[in-house]
């Protein structure tokens, strides 16, 4: 166990935990845009920055990655931290002016858009939090999407922006997408869904008959687990 202080509160935490984890356990709110419990931290959004003092040295660190240490003094709302967070959110508001999630967060944190930043016109809602790419690779194990280009041209897409061959239509990317950028269309009857340019045929539940999962996803699960597809063809409610 290590003893540290976060926002003047004395806290005991397990070694190896990150500042973000410990803060959350202790009811201290640190805003984040790229953090998800199912995923390893990535440190991309920079909203979770905090100021730490260890010995004589004070510095700004990423709380989702920085591990707690004995005697660490953490300030989650210092002037420097708030200034960096304000800029990050203002920059994202200018990038995705139509994102409801960003507007709500800005209101909560009392941050106004910076009038000097002309809002982007491309209607993209992607904030490049990378959660979709990380989910597809680390949770689903498929790697159907990734990044192309770099810098401000960077975007999430399938390889060569062609219809993905490896996508199984599971929709996990659309599910984790915090800004509603990734769209998944499902037909009225639910017999097919469209994502990343491909249409996936849905399987109906052997018991209740409801369409519940793409056939490609069940085939993928069957291949990785060895369970026959037929045994997987029962929806969660009927299992």
């Amino acid at each position: 166990m290590v003893n540290l202080t976060i926002d003047n509160k004395k806290i005991e935490a397990e070694a190896g935990q990150t500042i973000l984890e410990v803060s959350r356990e202790n009811g201290i709110v640190i805003p984040t845009l790229c953090s998800n419990e199912a995923l390893e931290p990535s440190g991309a959004c920079r909203m979770c920055l905090v100021e730490v003092k260890h010995g004589k040295r004070t510095r700004i660190v990423t709380s989702c990655l920085y591990q707690v240490a004995e005697g660490l003094i953490v300030d989650t709302k210092s002037e420097r931290v708030l200034a960096a967070r304000r800029l990050v959110l203002q920059l994202l508001l200018a990038r995705c002016p139509e994102s409801k999630q960003l507007r709500e967060m800005a209101e909560e944190l009392g941050i106004q858009p910076e009038p000097r930043f002309t809002p982007d016109q491309d209607k993209s809602k992607c904030i490049l939090c990378r959660m979709c790419v990380r989910t597809c690779e680390k949770v689903v194990g498929v790697c159907a999407i990734g990044f192309s280009y770099r810098g401000s041209e960077k975007n999430v897409c399938t390889p060569f922006q062609e219809d993905s061959v490896s996508c199984i239509g599971c929709g996990a990317c659309a599910y984790v997408c915090p800004s509603g950028h990734i769209e998944m269309e499902t037909t009225e009857t639910g017999d097919s869904r469209k994502i990343w340019g491909r249409t996936f045929k849905m399987k109906s539940c052997k018991v209740c008959g409801r369409y519940f999962a793409p056939e490609d996803q069940l085939k993928f699960i069957s291949t990785t687990t060895g369970v026959p597809v037929d045994d997987l063809a029962v929806c969660i409610s009927c299992r």
Binding site: A84, L92, S152
Partner: peptide, 22 residues
């Protein structure tokens, strides 16, 4: 630096580009 930013983190990817625009 705008062209060479990797684009992973927001301040560099978006901030440096806005500085360049100004």
């Amino acid at each position: 630096l705008v062209s060479e930013s990797c684009g992973k983190c927001v301040p560099c990817r978006e901030g440096v580009r806005r500085m360049r625009d100004i």
